[in-house]
Design a protein around this nucleic acid. Structure first.
Lengths: 233, 233
DNA sequence: CGATTCCTTGATCAGTATCAAGGGCGGTGG
DNA sequence: CCACCGCCCTTGATACTGATCAAGGAATCG
């Protein structure tokens, strides 16, 4: 039973569709939960028993094969919605990439509430449509882009998403940021190996498009050339 | 102003969320339109001015780069919904792969109607969630599967989707079917070249998993082995 | 301070793309 | 009805990108 009024993602999460008294009801259904880096909230193939809003931190959605190949199919940031409302098992796992806080609901409770609140469903629909567009752009990357184009695209995407959810300032993007992903995870998002990611980052650094102050930090030094390389439309 | 009551996809399209009198109103907003093979209904980057239900035929959703690379990011079958309701430009083109009939609405008219009909939005949300799950499974294919796994997966997927929308019988899948895609388009869905697709089909044929009576026909002779190869969960 | 984990770099390999040629099918016009 | 033409598909030879194998180095944590 959290204080939604004071929630840092209050105005960006789907909750923004609700009036104060509706929010009060929803707040009784959910609870704030800490998730440690590496902890898995939902397992691929399990029935989707919970949904959640991300308050802080970054989580990955991932699919894997029996023989151990993994593909990250989504990365979620603060104010994003997690989970599969209205039935069905989850087709992917949800795992924290950083320590995170989420506002979690049982699916049954959330579904019941959502059924009564069309505005919430509308917000959810818009978010899902946006997510689908993003997934499709990523399909183009995975199907048709080269390794260097993929890495450039990822850096710009993270820059944009971190910028738009940044608390400190409402910028369209950030030129300096901390990667929420390690090299292996970058490979898993891009459909590449860790070695290829590393080599491409080195190339971008040598071409003076970026610098890498430490293994988790990126500074974009020439956004324009990076965008050209990323085939940004 | 079409006769929705008699519509062949009446019970499977999103219209199934509506009561007869609501359907009568919606029917006045839309019209039935023929789309010839190869004709493009929506262009990538254009403002999304129309949405539609597919009545018959098959269409592709595709994204392309300035230098001519193309990725098919979705294939839609009868009863599927096309378009991006509630604002935004389309992030992909929609083109008929076969001659098709669609029930088309201006986005403005559809949005207005949908706003007043939560059940319709609910149906749309469920469809969009399903589509997102499918897109994410495809991301795994594009990022991590080998050429032979990809081709096997595609054949099974088409078999399943044609089966579930087949008018003649409600089967879970079909063992014999006509491909709505030529080799180039199969490559564009799978992130492969036409030559690689052709070679993999030949291999599947030589391994007696399928036969290819003519260039557009496929017969699945050993679904079980094909599923193993496709890494079907 | 040592151990472990993560990252980079190098050498080699493999899978798929590219380049190139030929064949079969369907459509068209004589 | 048949011959020709064009398109799509298959197959082969070669090239190249990124994967794999391997080793060393840097940052992090106890």
């Amino acid at each position: 039973m959290s204080d939604c009024e004071a929630c840092v993602v209050r105005n960006r999460a789907i909750c923004s569709a609700l009036l104060p008294d509706e929010l009060a009801i929803l707040s009784k259904l959910g609870r704030k939960q800490h998730v440690s880096r590496g902890q898995t909230l939902v397992w691929e193939g399990d029935e989707a028993l919970v949904v959640a809003n991300v308050i802080s931190g970054v989580l990955k959605l991932s699919v894997s094969t029996a023989d151990g190949r993994e593909q990250i199919v989504g990365v979620v940031f603060p104010s994003d919605f997690i989970g599969r409302p209205f039935g069905k098992e989850s087709s992917y796992s949800v795992t924290a990439l950083t320590d995170a806080h989420v506002c979690i609901f049982t699916r049954a409770a959330f579904d019941g509430f959502a059924k009564e609140h069309p505005d919430l469903q509308h917000k959810l629909l818009q978010r899902t449509l946006d997510e689908l567009d993003r997934a499709r752009q990523w399909m183009m990357l995975l199907g048709r882009k080269t390794a260097s184009e993929r890495v450039a695209t990822l850096l710009l995407e993270i820059s944009n998403r971190m910028g738009s959810t940044s608390c400190t300032q409402i910028l369209p993007f950030l030129d300096e940021f901390e990667l929420p992903l390690d090299r292996q995870q970058m490979g898993d998002v891009l459909g590449l190996t860790i070695e290829t990611v590393s080599r491409q980052l080195t190339k971008l650094k040598e071409a003076n498009m970026i610098s890498l102050p430490d293994r988790r930090s990126v500074v974009i030094k020439d956004r324009h050339r990076l965008q050209d390389l990323a085939l940004a439309a």
